[in-house]
Design a binder for these strands. Structure first.
Lengths: 201, 201
DNA sequence: ATTTTTGCCTAACATACGTTAGGTAAATGA
DNA sequence: TCATTTACCTAACGTATGTTAGGCAAAAAT
């Protein structure tokens, strides 16, 4: 009942299954409104049984949020290490971000929307990681300015605006829609680079 | 205890005070996590006393969300009625949006983040209003294309990206910071119009 | 073959929640 | 002056929540 995709689930550890369903429900109903009993029901077990695999509800939120943060951070680090050209860096960073986010929409939505509900101690740790990620993008903009290819008077502002656009994807992206993640990334990159105004003008 | 700004509150009806505190708490803790007892405590009364002024907790969320929606909608309608030039329209629409959002950050955050928790019936109504607002922006982009001043192959995509940027303000705007709403709006407008890339290139 | 571990179960706990019922003292209106 | 309304109160209700305790059958490890 409610279990669904069993073939897929069979190769996945119980803890992983719990995380997947948690992300789904945290996204749909919000962290507080999604109960342990809801999560258990999705897996066809009782709420108390969840505690054979996890320590607490908070742990679920933590794991989802920090996994995403780690994934994004290692992506931006790699971009800044590997590529030389600022335009290429920004293009790749955006492409990676869009792919990570669309690759696990549930977890990404929780990462973007529900991180505020982390317990205080983990929250400050989380915010540090977010800041580090933002710094990764800032670094790209600084590179671009040195290369005389980007212009961003207020770098922090520019980064926040860029990230707002790539994060907002979770609000409207439909995997069954007619845009692939790479197409979205390209679209976004073009928009961020050149804006709305007609170039010939 | 916890009441604070009494002078200001004295000219405001009790129901309005409740709404103000609700918005504050819904923003800080989320709709589900902020309890009626929390809201009451902010006003120095008992939870049950709230029900002399309101019907339910849902009603509070509804009022906050729909007020914001109405305010934004009449703003975009006015812009589309009054101005003729597409660039001017977009500039004013963004300026209005930023001013409305920064003018009541608590309510705006709830409008942007917590609308999902609306009861099903109100939720569909709310989504209709959001779509209408998006259409208002889309209309501006279409105007701009006809005037040969904007270029946006995918208009829906462009609108979502623009709105993501103006909505994300609630995540970082600090009223005590060193940017006025109008400065933010101008900054945003420039970014949306021309992007990062250096023009001379 | 026997022990240990795993993964679930039922039952229950303490707490928190939105909300209602019924009352009361002060302000308001006739 | 008396009646009504307003804005609060205390008490309580039913329900939902995260989590723990203790047990039990099957699988895994020794």
């Amino acid at each position: 009942m409610g279990v669904g995709n069993k073939d897929f689930m069979e190769n996945t550890s119980r803890k992983e299954q719990i995380l997947i369903k948690s992300a789904k429900l945290f996204r749909e109903k919000g962290f507080e409104a999604a109960s342990m009993r809801d999560i258990a029901k999705e897996l066809g077990i009782e709420a108390a049984s969840l505690y054979s695999h996890i320590k607490s509800k908070d742990e679920l939120l933590e794991t989802i949020c920090f996994r995403m943060a780690d994934e994004l951070l290692s992506s931006i680090d790699e971009v800044n290490d590997v590529y030389f050209n600022a335009e290429e860096k920004l293009n790749t960073a955006i492409k990676n971000h869009v792919n990570i986010v669309t690759g696990d929409l549930d977890a990404a939505s929780v990462f973007i929307r529900e991180w505020r509900r982390l317990p205080e101690k983990k929250l400050s740790e989380f915010i540090k990681l977010r800041d580090k990620y933002e710094d990764g993008f800032k670094q790209i903009l600084i590179n671009g300015e040195n290369e005389n290819v980007f212009e961003a008077p207020d770098k922090k502002f520019a980064v926040l605006t860029i990230l707002s656009a790539v994060n907002w994807i979770t609000e409207w992206y439909n995997p069954k829609g007619n845009m692939t993640p790479d197409e979205i990334a390209e679209h976004l990159y073009n928009f961020i680079l050149t804006g709305l105004k007609i170039k010939s003008k």
